[in-house]
Structure formats: C-alpha cells, structure tokens
Design a protein around this nucleic acid. Structure first.
Lengths: 240, 240
DNA sequence: TGATTGATTTAGGCTAGCCTAAATATAAGA
DNA sequence: TCTTATATTTAGGCTAGCCTAAATCAATCA
C-alpha cells in the first residue's frame, strides 16, 4: 500500500470533502498541521498518481480510486476503535491516537480477521458508521442535539470524535450511545440546553450540543423505522 | 520513542547478540537486508545516542539502555503474536510479519492493556519467552531435539520462528507446543530422526530437528496448573 | 477597472535512511 | 614480515516529506 503520509492526506481529504464539500490547500494544511507549501507539493504528487483531481488554486477532490483508498483507511481506523473499546477496555476518548497508528499497518488479512473477531460491527464507539470492505458507507441521517426543541426526547446515536475532551465530558454526563435525552429547557439566544439523562439534569452549551447527534426515541420493536432525516447511502458516487 | 528503523536495528543487535555473541556490521547488514555502508552509518548514530558501544572495525554491543529498549520491542512483538493466534486465529507461521509492524506502533498503554486482555501470557505461540515489562527475560534451558538420543522422550517447548516454512511443516507433522515426541531412530551420520508424535511416525532431518526445542516429559498433574483465563474469543456486550 | 489582499505554488534547503564506489583497517597466509 | 583478501568505514548521491521565503494567482473592493 501507500506510505503512511499519503494515507493521512487521503483520509483528511475524504473527511473534509464529506464535511465541508470543498477541500483547499489551507484546510489540509491546518488539519494535518503541515505548511501549505508541503501540502501543495503532496497534492501534486497525489494528482500525478491519480488519487486526486487538482485544479491549481482551486482545490482538490478524490478520484474514485482515491476515495476507495481513503474509505479503506477509515474502515480500518474504526475497526480498531471498536477493538480498543470492546476488547482492551479503553474509554472512547482514548482511542483516536492509537487507531491513528494502527490503521496504517493493517494488512487485508488483519483487517478481515479483526472484523470477524469483533462480530462484523457496523458502528464504531462514537456511533460513526464503519464502511464495508467494498467501500460502502451506509450513513443514517442524524440530527444534532442542537436542533431539537424543548420537550422533545431523543436517543444518542453518535458523538463527534473531533475532540477527546468533548467525549470525556459527554460520558461524564452520562451522554453515551443509546442513552435517552429529554430536552427540559432551551435558551434560544445561545442555544444552550437543560437536559435530563438517566434521571439527572445537566446544562449543555449550544457548542457541545452540536457535537451530539440523536435519533427519535423508538419502540424496541420498530427501532429502525424512523429517523429525523432520510436514510442515505454514500457509496462510490457523490459524497455528503 | 525511537523511529521504526532504529527499533529494528536495536532488536536485531539484541537477537544476534543472544544468538551469536558478537555482532558485526556485516551480520546486521545481512539480517536487515541493508548495505553494510548503511549499517555503519546507523551504528555511528546509535553509538552517539548511547544505545550501543562501538569499537570501530570490531563490532557493536548494546548498552544497558539499548538492551532495555530492545527487550521492550521483543516483548511487544511477542504479545502481538499471542494476540494474533489466540484472538484472531492466525496460524503460528502467519504472524511474524504482522507482529513486525505492530510492535513499532505500540504505546505503553496499549502494551499494558493487551497484556492484561491476553491474561499476562509468559510465552509466545512459538514457545519463546515474553519478557516482563521490567525487561526480565526468564529463559528456561531447552535442549534441541537434535541433541536427544534414541529411545528418549520429550515434550516440545519451543519451535524456532526463523522460518515460516519450518513452522508450517512442523505443525503439519503435529509438532506443536506441549506435544510429546518419542525418538525411535537416529542416524548418526546426518543427525536425522525417526520420531513418533501423536501416534504417527515421521522422518525428520537433522536440520529441522535443530529448530525444535524440547523439555523432559513432566507429570501430567503438575503441568495443568497454569492460569488460562486468556481471551480466546471476543465476547462483547453490545454491538451497536 | 485596477489595486490590494489572501491563498497557493515554486524555489531552495534540511534530515533520515538508503545506495554505490572508493578508501582504509584488520587478519590470515606465504 | 609482507601481501592479500575481506570487512568496515567514508564520500558523495538519491528520495520522501518537511520547512521558510519569494513569487504568482484570484477575488474583492474602491
């Protein structure tokens, strides 16, 4: 496979592409903590090898091949995260760095065996979907907790893994996957919330609420029948 | 920690030191498949940072610090090997390469958790001793199968992991850890043996016999007492 | 429109490790 | 002892990725 550095670029491009649409030299520079000049060089290299399309001064986009490679790395990352939590008893805020290293040295066989040993999980410990080996990413629509109104109830389906501190704090409040949340109060001017989780009440800033994603409370029976948005499959075609 | 390359050098020096005593530029060059010139450069670097003693034109030896680091890597390598066999169901001839990569990206915490999850194993799947976290390597004396005489019996305690082919062949003959072997015949001129294992007889070359290490047959009773609370399969609470 | 500003790319350098070829040290044999 | 063969080291180069500084492009605003 490719070098670790190349893999990191591909993965970052993939993530930024899904999250923001456009991927620029500077966004990559910031994300990878590398100078814009270095990014520019690497982009040229990636374009030469056919992993990205590059329009100078405009931005990059993954080619089909680049996207496939990126998704594969994301898959490995998330499988390792499941392993770290389920088998090695890590907390969900401790796993990112470890998975970041493990993903790059994972052979096809190792990926396969790990997947099997874990029971073919479909989500990582933060609730992010684990792409299939074929590169299919089945993303269920999710609403941010920040979008709910007073009186509504919901169930936590994902917490953004962008910051370990957020994760740590969320779990301290009892906000972990599959927990039920009631919105008790909402301050419109700053988006902050008073919520109830497991019988306890907490105040949550609008900022934090944006990192927490939820689904409607479902009956045990027909759990998957509803979601706030449409179920959607991001496959090889368009992202986001 | 150090770079992957430095770690590989330290580990190789450690292994060669244990096996042959003296460690030369050329032996490292051969083992690491790198030119002698490159080895010479790296040795200078390692000497400068205090990991090895170097007498130009004579050879290298690990300092205490270098040895500690090398043993730590060996420990990680062997823990991963146990993991690959016990948890991911690899065969013992498939694990070396994977462990070779995993060992370099293993944080202290990961090492600790892995060790715990595996039930603090003391030997890897080939029978090699796993150094403790403090760097203690408890090596029990072992005789090579090649040193036994006709009529003797023994129990397999280790099989050299220097070649996957040897491992594969050995397991095909039923020669795996803790198996009992009877020496039925020995040809002195080439050291080859006729042995009985699990009721079947096989011919074994002297060369192969040198890769198989054995202990005297022990009482059934005493052997059982080892703790076996290892993770053999992964049982998980919830699978998202 | 044309100047300014910010983003991007190019130029020129650095390091870690690798290489081959050349120089040098040791050891072994005449 | 002297010569020769072999092992080791040094010299000089290469690549991948990183950097800063300088040059260039594009987009916006006067």
């Amino acid at each position: 496979m490719a070098s670790e550095n190349v893999e990191d670029y591909l993965k970052s491009i993939y993530t930024l592409q899904s999250k923001e649409g456009r991927v620029t030299t500077s966004s990559l520079s910031e994300r990878l903590r590398v100078s814009a000049a270095s990014v520019s060089e690497m982009i040229k290299k990636l374009a030469d090898e056919g992993s990205v399309h590059h329009t100078p001064y405009k931005g990059v986009a993954l080619t089909e091949e680049g996207k496939t490679r990126a998704i594969r790395i994301v898959r490995r990352h998330r499988l390792w995260e499941v392993f770290l939590v389920e088998v090695l008893k890590y907390e969900w805020d401790e796993i990112h760095e470890e998975a970041e290293r493990l993903e790059h040295i994972t052979s096809d066989k190792l990926e396969e065996r790990l997947d099997a040993a874990l029971g073919y999980p479909t989500k990582d410990p933060h609730g992010d979907v684990i792409p299939t080996r074929e590169g299919k990413v089945v993303q269920f629509g999710q609403a941010s907790l920040a979008s709910l109104k007073v009186g509504e109830q919901c169930v936590v389906s994902r917490v953004s893994d962008s910051s370990p501190d957020v994760l740590k704090y969320a779990s301290k409040l009892g906000i972990t996957l599959r927990k039920k949340i009631h919105i008790r109060e909402k301050l419109e001017f700053d988006g902050s919330l008073r919520v109830q989780v497991e019988g306890r009440e907490h105040f949550i800033s609008g900022k934090l609420a944006q990192h927490i994603f939820v689904e409607p409370v479902a009956d045990e029976k027909r759990r998957r029948s509803k979601s706030f948005k449409r179920v959607r499959t991001i496959s090889r075609g368009k992202s986001s």
